Computed example of a mutant assay.
Amino acid sequence: MSDEPFNHEAAEKQITDALIDQLLTTAEQLKTTREVMRKGEDSLDRRLQRAGLVRRQWKQTEEALPALMAEARNAGYTVEGIAYTLGLTESYVYRVLREQRAAQAEADDDDTSGHDWHHPTPSAGLRCRHCGLAHKNWSGEDCPAAE
């Protein structure tokens, strides 16, 4: 043992310096690891994988988009609001809604049981060209006059 008193300040400084060196070494290792990870994220394989995932998600959304737009419009949303929310132009939304209505009308026409519905005058309700039945009175039966 030494006769000199224990120098707390020197010991504290030595411990502090060692901790600071260790902290700086750890920070440098972390920085290096992050750089390697960033390079990995920017790799061609990683970018292709991300692009493929986004594309598949978009395809699923794209298939449901016309019905979603029609549902929103029927719920009272404006075309401007739908376009803004989806990041589309108003003309595109109008076009999709027209196509959606036409597809729905075609689907409705496919289940007419032989009736050929039309408006005899602009203010008249739908009537069958073959048998004259009013659409409002139709209960789903086949047209008796259909060929």
Results as ranks from 00 to 15, higher is better:
58 W>M: 02
56 R>W: 03
54 V>G: 00
57 Q>T: 02
34 R>Q: 13
52 G>E: 14
54 V>M: 06
39 K>R: 15
34 R>K: 15
45 D>Q: 15
38 R>F: 07
38 R>A: 07
25 T>N: 04
51 A>F: 10
23 L>T: 10
35 E>S: 11
29 Q>C: 02
45 D>V: 12
24 L>W: 01
40 G>L: 05
41 E>M: 14
57 Q>K: 05
54 V>R: 09
23 L>R: 09
24 L>I: 08
47 R>M: 02
26 T>V: 07
45 D>W: 10
47 R>T: 00
51 A>W: 07
24 L>T: 09
39 K>E: 15
44 L>S: 08
48 L>S: 00
36 V>G: 03
52 G>V: 03
57 Q>V: 02
44 L>M: 08
25 T>C: 02
56 R>C: 03
39 K>T: 11
53 L>Q: 10
44 L>E: 15
48 L>H: 09
50 R>K: 13
48 L>E: 12
58 W>F: 10
38 R>E: 13
33 T>Q: 14
24 L>M: 10
54 V>L: 15
38 R>Q: 10
24 L>R: 13
35 E>V: 02
35 E>D: 10
51 A>Y: 11
40 G>T: 01
34 R>E: 07
49 Q>M: 05
58 W>H: 07
48 L>T: 09
57 Q>L: 12
42 D>V: 01
53 L>N: 04
29 Q>N: 08
53 L>C: 04
27 A>M: 11
50 R>L: 13
58 W>S: 01
47 R>L: 05
57 Q>F: 02
41 E>A: 08
48 L>G: 00
46 R>G: 01
46 R>K: 13
37 M>V: 15
29 Q>D: 06
58 W>N: 03
35 E>Q: 14
23 L>V: 10
26 T>P: 01
46 R>D: 03
27 A>I: 07
53 L>V: 11
52 G>P: 00
34 R>D: 07
53 L>W: 15
34 R>F: 05
36 V>M: 03
22 Q>I: 07
50 R>G: 01
31 K>F: 03
42 D>I: 01
51 A>T: 08
22 Q>V: 04
50 R>N: 05
38 R>T: 11
23 L>E: 10
25 T>V: 05
40 G>Q: 07
48 L>I: 14
42 D>A: 08
32 T>W: 04
49 Q>N: 12
28 E>I: 03
25 T>P: 01
51 A>C: 05
52 G>W: 04
23 L>K: 06
41 E>Y: 09
46 R>S: 10
39 K>L: 05
38 R>M: 12
50 R>A: 06
22 Q>F: 04
50 R>E: 13
22 Q>A: 15
30 L>D: 08
47 R>N: 01
39 K>Q: 13
42 D>N: 11
39 K>C: 06
43 S>F: 03
39 K>V: 05
47 R>A: 00
25 T>G: 06
33 T>D: 14
30 L>R: 08
30 L>E: 08
22 Q>M: 11
45 D>L: 15
47 R>K: 12
57 Q>R: 12
43 S>Y: 00
30 L>N: 08
48 L>M: 09
41 E>Q: 12
